[in-house]
């Protein structure tokens, strides 16, 4: 690891200020992403500002909203009874993420800032536009079993690594930030950016902007939700394909639907057309299959990952069946 300086900030403002004045400074909370990437030489911050002391880790329900402090650990949120009851797909996504130790370490804010697991991105020997614009994308024409079937560009076909982000995308969560320019509230749908020709820019966050909390607006489709994750081994693995899905079903008819896919795109992949196709339809296998076909309509494999198109469609059906029968 390149030598760096370290500071413990005492409040969010101090943390933001410390990072703001140094273009190469980073925040650190759990450390599970940034230290891993620093060891691989992918990230080389000059200063790490430890934000663990700047705020609490509470998960608070107020009326129809749950606010999750950005410093809450993945395991805190996964274990929270309100989350489990009102947003099961969030709890499910977390419980299927990483390992118990990493869930105890990683903060919610940090989880959302996780970077891709593309092995070319992590191997500084391989050309990667995300690491350095213009170098090329090694995954295109390379080993791309785990890569994107949606949203990729000629410069990047990576997939986003976070399970939580997929659930939050489906939940229409809001990410609240605290930055040099003040506070902001950003919808998850606006938070993650497609690679286009700037795969190095991954989120709407500005330098030194710190995630302070994530809020969920509770609704029946979130309460009746699930997270299906497909992978090679039973635990401790990133998704090949995942689906966060929720439905409000009244009298056998779907009133509202939420669907987002993971492991298929550089960002959590919400599929509004498929959701719209479900509304007003009976909660039946035929409806689910049709929605899955719509969800995958624009998908395109790049060789090693061609199987993901059919797999993701089946995973959508599976997720909808789970909550269809639960309702």
């Amino acid at each position: 690891m390149k030598p760096f300086r370290y500071a413990r900030a005492r409040d969010p403002q101090e943390a933001v200020q410390m990072v703001a004045v140094d273009a190469a400074a980073s925040f650190v909370a759990g450390g599970t992403t940034v230290l891993d990437l620093m060891k691989d030489d992918v990230e080389r911050p000059s200063l790490l500002v430890d934000i663990n002391g700047v705020a609490g880790r509470a998960i608070v329900r107020a009326g129809d909203e749950i606010a999750i402090a950005a410093l809450a650990r993945m395991s805190d949120v996964a274990d929270d009874p309100e989350i489990a009851k009102h947003a099961p797909m969030v709890a499910n996504a977390l419980l299927q993420s990483a390992s118990p130790q990493l869930r105890n370490m990683a903060s919610i804010g940090g989880n959302l800032m996780q970077r891709t697991r593309c092995s070319y991105f992590r191997d500084i020997v391989a050309p990667c536009n995300k690491r350095r614009r213009g170098d090329g994308c090694s995954a295109i024409g390379g080993e791309n079993r785990r890569h994107a079937i949606f949203g990729g560009s000629e410069s990047c076909i990576c997939v986003h690594a976070s399970d939580l982000a997929v659930a939050l995308a489906a939940a229409d969560a809001t990410i609240h930030t605290n930055g040099p320019g003040g506070t902001r509230a950003i919808q998850v749908s606006d938070f993650y950016l497609l690679p286009r020709d700037t795969p190095n820019v991954e989120t709407a966050l500005h330098h030194a902007e710190l995630i302070s909390s994530v809020t969920l607006s509770l609704d029946p489709a979130l309460a009746n939700s699930t997270y299906v994750k497909v992978r090679d081994r039973a635990q401790y693995e990133f998704a090949l394909v995942s689906v966060a899905a929720g439905m409000e079903i009244v009298g056998g008819t779907i009133r509202a639907a939420r669907i987002a896919l993971g492991g298929v795109a550089p960002i959590p992949w919400r599929v509004p057309e498929a959701e719209a196709a479900l509304v007003g339809r009976p909660a039946t296998a035929a409806s689910y299959r049709e929605a899955a076909e719509i969800a995958l309509a624009g998908a395109r494999g790049c060789g090693g990952n061609d199987f993901k198109v059919a797999l993701a469609a089946n995973a959508v059906v599976r997720a909808l069946e789970q909550i269809g029968s639960a309702a």
Partner: peptide
């Protein structure tokens, strides 16, 4: 009392 991976955290933290 919580289990963590000590390789991905700094001593100074």
């Amino acid at each position: 009392d919580r289990a963590i991976d000590s390789c991905l955290t700094l001593a100074v933290m």
